[in-house]
């Protein structure tokens, strides 16, 4: 029970920091809205295929800029303090959960902005939102570990995008297929298989992160 309450308090702590630095939230919101607006002005008419592709491109780039601060915002003395209070496993699980929910909200925000400013090709909302949820899950797992690695390196902003964008590709390709089925440009026949494969990849990555993070944290 102690572990669960620790995780809960760590999530609350992240949420409080987020609330205190409201300008970060506002800037991500503005980033999404203005980018979607630019896309709609430049492309004029967007085919469903292109819609799907741009959706995930914007998702990745917003996620990079949102996740960048995930570990680098922690001052080293403060992380030492957490280290005494809790274990690294609890910290990474709390980060996973927090990042998952923030990316999910971000994904839904991008989806809403796309529907309002561009057009609405979505045929099956259930499948599409499932794709966004799985995307947020996969991307948050990879970005959490990578941002913990990048925060140890020198130039963490560049390092973060260099390290994470190629790594996130397999997960995003599966999501592209799932949301593609939600839009109706791909058939539903392979979707169960895709979801299963994606979940198994995510499970492996979560396992690997849980083993690796304590090593990284100790440095």
């Amino acid at each position: 029970m102690k572990v669960l309450s620790n995780i809960w308090y760590l999530i609350l702590k992240d949420f409080n920091i987020e609330l205190r630095q409201r300008y970060i939230l506002a800037s991500i919101f503005l980033y999404v809205i203005s980018t979607v607006f630019i896309i709609s002005k430049i492309l004029q008419t967007v085919s469903p295929m292109l819609w799907n592709a741009i959706f995930w491109i914007l998702f990745i780039f917003t996620a990079v800029s949102a996740m960048m601060k995930s570990f680098s915002q922690e001052i080293s003395q403060r992380s030492l303090y957490y280290y005494y209070l809790t274990g690294p496993i609890e910290i990474i699980i709390a980060k996973f959960i927090y990042n998952f929910f923030s990316l999910l909200l971000m994904g839904l925000l991008i989806m809403a902005a796309f529907i309002v400013f561009i057009n609405n090709p979505i045929e099956n909302y259930g499948i599409f939102v499932l794709g966004v949820i799985l995307g947020a899950l996969g991307v948050s797992v990879i970005f959490t570990l990578v941002s913990s690695i990048a925060s140890k390196g020198g130039n963490s902003a560049t390092l973060m995008s260099v390290l994470s964008i190629p790594l996130v590709l397999p997960v995003v390709l599966f999501n592209l297929r799932i949301t593609g089925a939600g839009i109706g440009i791909l058939g539903m026949t392979t979707i169960a298989n895709d979801i299963l494969l994606l979940l198994s990849i995510i499970t492996i990555l979560v396992g690997v992160s849980l083993i690796l993070f304590p090593q990284i944290w100790r440095t």
Partner: peptide
């Protein structure tokens, strides 16, 4: 390789790049 060259401290470099290497292989 970029990650390795970006960290100066030897011990830290070894730990971070080993973790990344394992993570990358699974992807």
């Amino acid at each position: 390789l970029v990650l390795r060259s970006s960290i100066k401290d030897g011990d830290k470099k070894a730990i971070i790049s080993s973790s990344y290497n394992i993570f990358a292989f699974f992807i």
